[in-house]
Design a protein around this nucleic acid. Structure first.
Lengths: 119, 119
DNA sequence: TTATCGTCTGAGTATGTGCTCATATGTTAA
DNA sequence: TTAACATATGAGCACATACTCAGACGATAA
């Protein structure tokens, strides 16, 4: 059994020093949760389509529903999630709400994600 | 009712030109699915902790289980998902498998995600 | 005011998912 | 070979979630 590393534990192959080092990478619990929620929000095919659609031009709920082929209610539910996480923002023009990406981070995340899957 | 945009539809507030433009942002279905799966994989708190832990040094399943406080089985299940999406890679040393991040994209995604939530 | 339209929200439901447990696989040492 | 250990995998269950439907809310126009 290889115990080549001097920091290996005696009982099993556990490396206390590595675990200590790993614990330094921990985020604050709220930050960790927020970061996971950000990726989770982008990890749904419908929401990802919305983000891609908004990456070039703002659109209203009607547009998005017609584009995605789902009800406006479903779009609204998803937009709520994206709004709460500051992935999208909106602008009112009369009764119509126009949604857009909130900042540049979203497009950058998508670009890097695409780089990864195309590697 | 505002129909300020010349491309607004008559029936409702639907903008055909915007929808046409949005459809140009569509990815190939397999790519779209892969991209969503990538973000979905990073959107679970357990898997995100694993990725953060591996961001500085490789670790074996034992290490990760001890670090996360969950069973090795649970870790193995999550590592399988991360492996299949090429988020992590492993290296065998005797009976022990050491896991590491597969490439630089993962760290960059995490960094940009952190920028976003800290904005 | 009322009527209409765009959007939002709560309830209900079907599907997805992350864990535990038990077992299988694969490697090393005796 | 057998035994021990590290890891992987399948089944089952509890919980999360994305949709539809029905109705509410908010803005505009008559």
């Amino acid at each position: 059994m290889p115990k080549t590393n001097e920091d290996a534990c005696l009982c099993r192959v556990i490396h206390p020093k590595r675990i200590e080092k790993a614990s330094q990478t921990c985020l604050q619990p709220e930050e960790h949760e927020k970061l996971a929620n950000l990726f989770k929000a982008m990890g749904d095919t419908t929401r990802l389509k919305i983000l891609l659609a908004l990456s070039h031009e703002e659109m209203c709920v009607c547009d998005l529903a017609a584009f995605l082929g789902i009800t406006e209610s479903a779009v609204s539910h998803q937009l709520r999630i994206l709004r709460q996480l500051y992935l999208v923002a909106n602008r009112r023009e009369g009764p119509v709400l126009y949604y857009r990406l909130n900042d540049e981070h979203i497009s950058r995340l998508i670009d890097i994600g695409l780089e990864h899957i195309r590697e």
